[in-house]
Amino acid sequence: MITYLEAIRLAQQKALATDPRVFLYGQDIGTFGGAFKATKNLSTEFPGRVLDSPLSEDAIVGIAIGAAIEGARPIVEMQFADFSTCGLNQIVNHAATLFYRTGTPCPIVVRLPSGGTSGGGPFHSQSLEAVYSHWPGLVVLTPATVEDAYSMLLESVALDDPVVFCEHKFLYYHLKAERLPDEALPIGKARIARPGRDASVVTHGAMLHESLAAAELLAQDGFELEVVDLRSVKPLDTDTVLASVARTGRLLCVSEEWPWGGVAAEVIARVSTEGFGLLDAAPVRINAKDTPVPYHPELWAVHRPTASTIAAAARQLLHI
């Protein structure tokens, strides 16, 4: 069985093996294999192309940008998404503006081990996809399955634009697949993860699995939730979301990020403005609570949406 984390490692291995322009740069990713082992053995297999960086997020991204200008395809690892804020300037002001300003594309992939895990705490748990989506010039991805972790990372490397790849740490070890896909939905297309007729649950990342579990709970009551996995939050596949809402008439957005200006807020804004007539009820959103992500597992379990809180919100939306 292949884990989500192994899929990310294998995607990088394949990118290195098939494209001589690819190299990896980041903290502890060489011989040590990365904090999560997403680059395990790659420095041995590809000598000189998997490089340890100093503890310098700004320089890591800046170096990737310069390398991309010179025709390379760098994949850089932020040890945790939370630390990418130290490289934020290079990502949003340099990489994201380069093509618009100069016509020179900036094909870099910035890997962000994202999201909460038990015990992670305020600085090792953040979900920053909405932050990066705010700036023009970036593609922001949130793979929620082993297959997507693999295929979307490979597609990211092939893309001529800068990609913020928000891989979810909660899914690293327990999410498993039999085999990796040869073909996949392209970046920018959402996926109906579970069809249903009564309400659309639009979600991404680790929340996909909480939402699917919530759908199981509702199924026991005879209600069918349709679960939409966004896969990429920028570009956002509004068409698939609207088509789902057209079928169900109800929208529940679930996101692990903080509420203000988040992906859930954006989805609701789009459905309300572009598909108001499709709605039979006011849209609902569930986000993490508006505090730093707490360390203690008991607090963390309540801080973020879970199957039971999603199910409760769905029941409310459906008046059951």
């Binding site: 740069y25 890591i60 800046g62 940008i65 310069g66 390398a67 390379a72 290079q90 340099h94």
Partner: peptide, 20 residues
């Protein structure tokens, strides 16, 4: 870009790519 110092790692990265 207007953010000072930002071009230092960018040029370093260009050089790294050339070396690779």
């Amino acid at each position: 870009i207007s953010h000072l110092g930002a071009m230092v790692p960018a040029v370093a990265g260009g050089l790294l790519a050339r070396r690779l």
